[in-house]
Amino acid sequence: MSDQTFYADGLAGLAAGARAELASDEAGHLRAARIRPGRRLEVIDGAGLRWEAELVTLDRRGASCRLLAPRPPVPALPLHLWAPVANRDRSLWLVEKVVELGAATITWIEWERSRSVADAGRAEGFLRRAAGRARAALKQSGRGWLPRLEGPVKPEEAFGRHEGEGWLADAEGRQRLGDVIAHGSEGAGAGRPLTVAVGPEGGLTGPERRRCLEAGFRLVSLSSATLRFETAAVVVVAAAAALLANDDNETDEERST
């Protein structure tokens, strides 16, 4: 089978042998990759479905494939990232990395110290660019779930929708991230959502930090060094994804015994 992965529209409810239309922008990618009708490829819909397929048509109007066999789905992680409104290019890089790690949502928060950032992801079209980066990262990583992208939103709006457990990556955190991983995370796992939050350059203000604590977030220290927001986000998302995946595997083992 080809290791090339492409998006197909409307996979839900289809069976082997059915035809599926590839997303409108995939025709150009197929031509660039020199893939012709008759080649095997993998198609995904960003909502968990993955199929082995055969390219049937490719022309100026688009491309279509025939579904051959479903492939094992990649479980979705109940993992959510609150990223600060920050430098646009660094934010787009962050999207790629956390999509590879399995984040279910990425929400950009307008923290107090985000307001002074000039080149930030507030401009019209930022979410569209971020969605493009997310799709490319999803295809590269082999995951099956495209994250929901939201923002920018005010902190109180995000707190109002928050549920489950929360970690705040913060220099004042008393608990080291390694200790959280070593001992597990109270309340995480078993399908419960886990939100990880990262502040802007300079960190959260005192009132913002207290509001996180009131909402049930635990302050987690990542390093004695001062990390950029995107580095901190990748570190904490990777740790949370590993913990949630381990919890999910343990649950499956319990069900099988």
Score class of each variant (00 low, 15 high):
residue 108 W to A: 11
residue 142 G to Y: 01
residue 164 G to I: 04
residue 132 G to V: 01
residue 107 T to G: 05
residue 96 E to R: 13
residue 120 A to N: 14
residue 131 A to D: 15
residue 169 A to F: 08
residue 168 L to H: 03
residue 136 A to G: 10
residue 145 W to K: 05
residue 147 P to G: 06
residue 136 A to S: 14
residue 95 V to H: 06
residue 144 G to D: 05
residue 170 D to P: 08
residue 149 L to H: 08
residue 177 L to V: 08
residue 124 E to S: 12
residue 140 Q to M: 11
residue 191 G to W: 13
residue 122 R to Q: 07
residue 136 A to L: 11
residue 117 V to T: 12
residue 126 F to H: 08
residue 171 A to G: 05
residue 97 K to S: 08
residue 161 R to N: 03
residue 173 G to W: 08
residue 173 G to V: 10
residue 137 A to G: 02
residue 122 R to I: 00
residue 168 L to F: 12
residue 102 G to N: 10
residue 114 S to V: 14
residue 146 L to H: 00
residue 147 P to H: 11
residue 177 L to F: 05
residue 103 A to M: 09
residue 127 L to G: 10
residue 105 T to H: 08
residue 145 W to D: 00
residue 147 P to N: 11
residue 102 G to M: 02
residue 118 A to E: 11
residue 154 K to H: 15
residue 160 G to K: 12
residue 97 K to M: 05
residue 132 G to Y: 01
residue 160 G to N: 10
residue 108 W to V: 08
residue 123 A to M: 09
residue 106 I to S: 11
residue 168 L to I: 07
residue 128 R to S: 14
residue 181 I to E: 13
residue 170 D to C: 13
residue 144 G to H: 02
residue 172 E to I: 05
residue 183 H to I: 05
residue 186 E to L: 15
residue 176 R to E: 13
residue 107 T to R: 10
residue 118 A to P: 04
residue 159 F to D: 05
residue 154 K to P: 15
residue 137 A to M: 02
residue 137 A to L: 01
residue 177 L to Y: 04
residue 186 E to I: 15
residue 120 A to C: 05
residue 139 K to N: 02
residue 103 A to P: 06
residue 112 E to M: 10
residue 100 E to D: 03
residue 122 R to E: 11
residue 148 R to L: 06
residue 124 E to Y: 03
residue 166 G to S: 07
residue 184 G to M: 10
residue 109 I to Q: 10
residue 184 G to Q: 10
residue 135 R to Y: 03
residue 175 Q to Y: 07
residue 187 G to L: 08
residue 173 G to N: 09
residue 135 R to D: 01
residue 101 L to H: 04
residue 100 E to I: 00
residue 144 G to W: 03
residue 134 A to K: 11
residue 162 H to L: 15
residue 96 E to I: 07
residue 100 E to R: 06
residue 106 I to T: 12
residue 141 S to D: 04
residue 104 A to T: 14
residue 186 E to W: 15
residue 155 P to Y: 06
residue 124 E to H: 09
residue 190 A to R: 14
residue 136 A to P: 04
residue 147 P to D: 07
residue 138 L to N: 01
residue 144 G to T: 02
residue 121 G to P: 09
residue 138 L to T: 01
residue 125 G to I: 00
residue 97 K to D: 04
residue 143 R to D: 00
residue 146 L to R: 00
residue 174 R to Y: 06
residue 107 T to P: 03
residue 176 R to Y: 13
residue 138 L to E: 01
residue 165 E to Y: 09
residue 124 E to G: 06
residue 109 I to C: 14
residue 171 A to T: 13
residue 190 A to P: 03
residue 175 Q to W: 07
residue 163 E to V: 06
residue 103 A to F: 07
residue 144 G to M: 03
residue 173 G to A: 11
residue 105 T to P: 01
residue 133 R to W: 08
residue 123 A to K: 15
residue 140 Q to G: 00
residue 112 E to N: 13
residue 123 A to Y: 15
residue 156 E to V: 00
residue 132 G to N: 02
residue 112 E to F: 11
residue 121 G to V: 03
residue 146 L to V: 03
residue 135 R to A: 02
residue 131 A to F: 04
residue 97 K to F: 03
residue 114 S to P: 11
residue 151 G to T: 00
residue 183 H to L: 09
residue 100 E to S: 05
